[in-house]
Simulated assay, not measured.
Amino acid sequence: MKKIIIPVLAVLSLSACSNTERGATIGAAGGAVIGGAATGNLRGAAVGAAVGGVSGALIGNVADRPGQCYYRDRYGNRYIDRC
């Protein structure tokens, strides 16, 4: 029974999140798994979770604005415009 309850609670908790929060959560979880598997230690999992969380949040943030993409100008400044 516990094997069913925990995933159901995880899915329900994500359903109340915005796309940015959902992307950060999924990115952090995926990054932790990949980082831990690639390095075999906790430090690699932590770095993977950090990188995955940031990239997932950026992707989720753009998902809130359909038809919009992130771009960088020649000075490195980030802006959002139509894709």
Rank of each mutant, 00 (worst) to 15 (best):
L12Y: 01
R43I: 13
R78H: 09
G60P: 02
A49F: 03
I4T: 07
C69Q: 13
Y79K: 09
D73S: 04
A38L: 14
A24S: 11
K3A: 13
T20G: 05
L58N: 11
R72P: 00
A10W: 01
S55M: 14
A45H: 03
G27D: 02
G31E: 04
A45D: 04
G40H: 02
N19D: 12
I80N: 05
A50V: 11
G52F: 02
D64Y: 00
A28I: 07
C17N: 06
D64R: 01
G60C: 04
S55R: 10
G56D: 06
G44L: 04
A32C: 07
D73C: 04
V8L: 15
A49Q: 03
L14Y: 01
G31S: 03
N41V: 06
R74K: 14
M1P: 10
P66V: 08
G27T: 01
K3Q: 11
A10N: 00
S15W: 12
A10F: 10
Y70L: 15
I5C: 00
N41T: 05
G35Y: 03
R74N: 13
I34F: 15
V11K: 00
L42H: 05
T25I: 15
G52M: 02
A50Y: 06
G76T: 06
P7S: 03
V8E: 07
G67I: 03
G44M: 08
S15I: 11
A32R: 07
G30C: 06
I26V: 14
R65A: 11
N61R: 11
A46T: 10
N61E: 13
G76D: 09
C69T: 13
V51L: 15
A38E: 09
A45I: 05
R82H: 14
G56W: 03
N77Y: 13
A28Y: 07
L58M: 10
G44V: 08
S18K: 00
A32M: 13
T20K: 12
R72A: 07
I4C: 00
S15T: 12
V54A: 10
N19F: 15
R82Y: 14
C83P: 08
R43N: 09
S15N: 09
R78V: 14
Y75T: 08
A49K: 02
G23I: 04
G76W: 10
G23F: 04
R72N: 08
L58Q: 13
S15L: 15
G23R: 07
A24G: 12
A49H: 02
G53Q: 05
A29W: 07
G53T: 06
G27V: 01
G76L: 09
D73G: 04
P66A: 10
A45W: 01
G27R: 02
N19Y: 14
S13H: 00
I6H: 12
I59P: 05
G48V: 06
C17Y: 03
Y79S: 13
A50E: 05
R65S: 12
S13T: 02
S18Y: 00
S55I: 14
L9V: 08
C83H: 10
V47G: 00
K2G: 13
